[in-house]
Write a protein that binds this DNA or RNA. Structure first.
Lengths: 151, 151
DNA sequence: TCTTGTTGGTTACAAATGAGACTTTATTCT
DNA sequence: AGAATAAAGTCTCATTTGTAACCAACAAGA
């Protein structure tokens, strides 16, 4: 086990890495679409996984529901997404991307993909595989991902 | 290069991993010492690297100076650290741990080390090496670490 | 010396967040 | 059916954070 120094303390290391890697991209969605990170995340979930309710997003992204509620309202105001009452349960609203939101999603995704590639570029393919795998296990994202349950 | 899906997007992945891994430990310093994360970080820097000024901590940790200023004040109120005017430059204050702060640091460090070991336990030694190395490179922490400049 | 610019640190105000109460609708149990 | 419980989502308030202005001390140049 490596020695306990700041450079080996995972919570600290992950936080720093997260901030460093998020910085450049956050200016993109902020400057281009005046979005906050939570809004970009909600947009991303809807664009990637398709229509879903706020609580679906909460389960997937592990964000608190109040954060999502606020992001949804902001995205509605921007005309990026639309709400419609979910078929049976009148408590739920199904969220979906409007054409304008789809365009923003496509645009941002292209930039995000490039950004991600640049971030991963310094690592060897083997390192990339291990890094991503470790992070997925640490993040607990695989636990609730919709795709993994369909295997 | 891996496909661009949420589970491979580093900023998102790192954020989720950071939140997951920080959660358990944040309750420790909060419940035991009523500290915020920024306070724990400042305490940690002083405990690990020795006396330094607020701007030293800012450079090392890449935290904004207002955050540090507030954390320093809170730690002073808790009697964990003390300020004294830095020798020459009367703008700077050298920060140092009081005995009480040292005790808290030792206590929290022991718990943090155990926590870190538990987080790293699921990975093989090879994975650990690569994970930590990748994260250090992504975090930019190595850039300004005082030890690396002494090599 | 007297400006001009820079740095360390604090303060003030606006914006974002978290925790929990609250409303409405669905579910379960008797 | 009626009461109790739970879930989806919103709202409110206290806490935390970010941005920028600010003050004091230093530094450099005319």
């Amino acid at each position: 086990m490596p020695p306990f120094i700041p450079e080996n303390f995972l919570p600290y290391l992950l936080n720093q890495a997260a901030e460093q890697t998020s910085l450049a991209f956050s200016t993109v969605y902020r400057d281009r679409y005046n979005m906050l990170r939570t809004e970009w995340r909600v947009l991303f979930h809807l664009g990637h996984y398709g229509d879903m309710t706020a609580s679906d997003i909460a389960r997937l992204s592990k964000m608190h529901k109040t954060k999502i509620s606020r992001a949804v309202k902001a995205l509605e105001d921007k005309r990026f997404i639309a709400k419609r009452a979910a078929s049976e349960d009148r408590r739920r609203d199904t969220l979906s991307l409007r054409p304008e939101g789809r365009r923003a999603f496509d645009d941002l995704c292209a930039i995000a993909a490039r950004h991600n590639a640049r971030l991963l570029a310094p690592f060897s393919p083997g390192e990339r595989l291990i890094l991503l795998d470790c992070l997925q296990r640490l993040s607990g994202l695989a636990d609730s991902a919709p795709d993994s349950s369909r295997l």
